[in-house]
Lab assay of single mutants.
Amino acid sequence: MDSLVVLVLCLSCLLLLSLWRQSSGRGKLPPGPTPLPVIGNILQIGIKDISKSLTNLSKVYGPVFTLYFGLKPIVVLHGYEAVKEALIDLGEEFSGRGIFPLAERANRGFGIVFSNGKKWKEIRRFSLMTLRNFGMGKRSIEDRVQEEARCLVEELRKTKASPCDPTFILGCAPCNVICSIIFHKRFDYKDQQFLNLMEKLNENIKILSSPWIQICNNFSPIIDYFPGTHNKLLKNVAFMKSYILEKVKEHQESMDMNNPQDFIDCFLMKMEKEKHNQPSEFTIESLENTAVDLFGAGTETTSTTLRYALLLLLKHPEVTAKVQEEIERVIGRNRSPCMQDRSHMPYTDAVVHEVQRYIDLLPTSLPHAVTCDIKFRNYLIPKGTTILISLTSVLHDNKEFPNPEMFDPHHFLDEGGNFKKSKYFMPFSAGKRICVGEALAGMELFLFLTSILQNFNLKSLVDPKNLDTTPVVNGFASVPPFYQLCFIPV
């Protein structure tokens, strides 16, 4: 009986604490739906499609509103004006990374994606500088992407125009580009180590996009005490870190300090320079996690976009025909596509942009946080508050993009057929937390897609009208449904 009384008292205290925290903070924060004790607004949000729920709530509470995930307040920004004001106009104040408990377990605050403060700034600055020195957006990395595009075309030829699921092959190409940047090595598509790495990356994007992960991140005790797919994700990350550590040891034994070959060499050189400046942010643990982040951000996002792009091109054969006509006119058949071609191919450029806009790969991006107490639109948001960005509300804005739910390359073309930029184009987020590999991803999408369409016609196994382009999961990332196609050599 005594234990029951204690339990009831504990629960009562928890409920009172929950109510007090919510009521004391709500006077400062933007308005929002009334949260339930302990669980907050979790029942009012469709976990399978958070973005749709945010759109519905914005119609009631406006472009800036507050939700509670458990006891934790989260300020939501919906629509271009609110997102721009926060991420661009007040970029420094909104540059923090929001709480992501599962990532905390995986990387302990290291790396480039989930770190904060001085650690994040130094690692991000170093990573950007190193990638630029190796030619991100310049010639040397373009050579690597072109080489991988040629290998991709050869792998597709091996399908002999038979029906195939493109998931694996389209994942190999961007993964190999990242391998060449980090390890100075590309792998054969049949290499077992490479296959294991690909498998872990593919599993992780599916797990991260599941409703279960949303629950884990908002009720963090689940991570330590409950079984579930989150444990598989943590094991996959541990596998990748151990693999990278092996490569780091190989580099330490063979590195030429006067001739760095890749990202690992550059990081080890930085560690050597910083060894007298303790404590340094440049450690082996930081290198492991930064490399894992580059793999995660640079492989599955690009391969998922490529997979979605081919599905949309199957669905819209008239678009595919126009792209192939432009390829034939500008590039021809006797040389590989290059980035200089893009400025002469406005329709193809528009298609690449429209694919990214339409699929809305990361509907709410990753959570941000404010780095200080900030007054925002007459609300006071306390330091450390998590900020949720609705990228969907920007990419699918119906004023900027008429009929935003329709796939239409003319969203990025003017009346004369010239490519038209849009400030609403934010597939990689915006501001200080914009994806480090934005330029690389854009290069890969253009070169891989043009190389495929230069060499193959795409054949659907069903009537294009019957192809479903609805994402199968739409949590962290929008993942396309399973499909097969035939690559018919031109």
Rank of each mutant, 00 (worst) to 15 (best):
V6A: 13
L7S: 11
L11N: 04
S12T: 13
R21H: 14
S24V: 13
S24A: 13
G27S: 15
K28D: 13
K28P: 10
K28T: 13
I42P: 05
L43F: 14
K48I: 06
S51T: 13
S53Y: 11
L54D: 03
L54E: 03
T55V: 14
V60R: 14
V60I: 13
Y61I: 02
Y61V: 02
G62H: 02
G62F: 01
G62T: 02
G62I: 01
P63A: 07
F65V: 03
L67F: 12
G70M: 03
V75H: 00
V75S: 00
V76R: 01
E85V: 07
L87C: 13
L90H: 15
S95A: 12
G96L: 09
G96A: 12
R97N: 05
G98I: 06
F100S: 15
P101S: 14
R108C: 13
S115I: 08
G117Y: 07
W120R: 07
W120S: 13
K121H: 12
K121A: 10
E122L: 08
I123L: 10
L128Y: 09
M129R: 13
M129Q: 14
T130L: 09
L131H: 05
L131C: 10
N133T: 10
K138C: 13
R139C: 11
S140D: 12
I141K: 00
D143N: 12
D143V: 11
R144A: 12
A149F: 01
A149T: 02
R150L: 09
V153Y: 00
E154I: 06
E154M: 07
L156V: 03
S162H: 11
S162E: 15
C164Q: 08
D165G: 01
D165R: 00
P166F: 00
F168G: 06
F168P: 05
F168L: 07
I169R: 01
L170W: 01
A173D: 00
C175V: 10
C175N: 02
C175D: 00
I182N: 00
H184N: 15
D188I: 02
D188S: 08
Y189G: 02
K190S: 10
F194V: 03
L197R: 01
L197G: 01
E199Y: 10
K200M: 08
N204V: 09
I207G: 06
I207C: 00
L208Q: 15
W212I: 10
I213K: 13
I213G: 15
I213P: 08
Q214W: 13
Q214R: 12
Q214N: 08
I215N: 05
I215F: 15
C216M: 15
C216P: 09
N218W: 15
F219P: 06
F219D: 07
S220M: 13
P221I: 07
D224C: 09
F226I: 13
P227C: 15
T229D: 15
H230C: 12
L234R: 13
N236L: 03
V237I: 08
V237Y: 07
A238R: 13
F239I: 09
F239V: 09
I244C: 05
V248H: 05
V248G: 03
Q252A: 10
S254T: 14
S254F: 09
S254P: 04
N258L: 09
N258T: 12
P260D: 07
D262M: 02
I264V: 06
M269D: 11
K270L: 07
K270M: 14
K273H: 09
T283R: 06
I284C: 06
I284R: 06
S286N: 15
S286Y: 05
E288F: 08
E288N: 06
L294T: 02
F295N: 00
F295G: 01
G298T: 00
T304F: 04
L306F: 01
R307Y: 00
Y308N: 01
L311P: 01
L311Y: 04
L311S: 01
L311F: 05
K315T: 08
P317S: 07
E318V: 08
T320M: 14
T320S: 11
V323W: 00
V323E: 01
Q324L: 03
E326C: 00
I327Q: 02
I327S: 02
I327E: 02
E328G: 14
E328P: 02
V330K: 11
V330I: 14
I331S: 05
R335M: 05
P337M: 04
P337C: 08
C338V: 09
M339V: 06
Q340V: 12
R342W: 05
H344C: 11
H344N: 13
P346N: 06
P346I: 04
P346K: 06
T348M: 11
D349F: 12
V351I: 03
V351F: 12
V352R: 03
V355G: 01
V355T: 10
Q356M: 14
I359H: 07
L361F: 09
L362K: 05
T364N: 12
T364F: 15
S365W: 00
P367E: 09
P367D: 06
I374A: 07
F376M: 11
R377W: 06
R377F: 04
R377V: 02
Y379L: 06
I381R: 00
I381Y: 00
P382G: 04
G384A: 04
T385S: 10
T385G: 03
T385N: 04
T386D: 11
L388P: 00
L388M: 11
I389N: 04
I389K: 03
L391I: 09
S393N: 05
V394G: 05
V394T: 11
H396V: 06
E400Y: 10
F401V: 04
P402A: 15
M406I: 13
M406P: 04
M406D: 13
F407L: 02
D408C: 05
P409T: 02
P409Y: 01
D414N: 06
E415C: 07
N418D: 08
N418P: 04
F419S: 06
F419L: 09
F419C: 06
F425E: 06
S429G: 15
K432W: 05
C435R: 00
C435I: 00
C435L: 00
V436Y: 06
A439L: 14
G442K: 14
G442H: 15
S451R: 04
I452C: 02
Q454G: 05
Q454F: 03
N455Q: 10
N457P: 00
L458A: 01
S460A: 14
S460I: 03
V462E: 11
V462I: 13
P464C: 05
N466R: 11
T470D: 08
V472P: 07
V472T: 08
N474T: 12
G475K: 05
A477F: 08
V479R: 15
P480T: 04
F482E: 15
F482H: 15
Y483W: 01
Q484Y: 04
I488C: 12
P489E: 04
V490N: 12
V490S: 11
V490F: 08
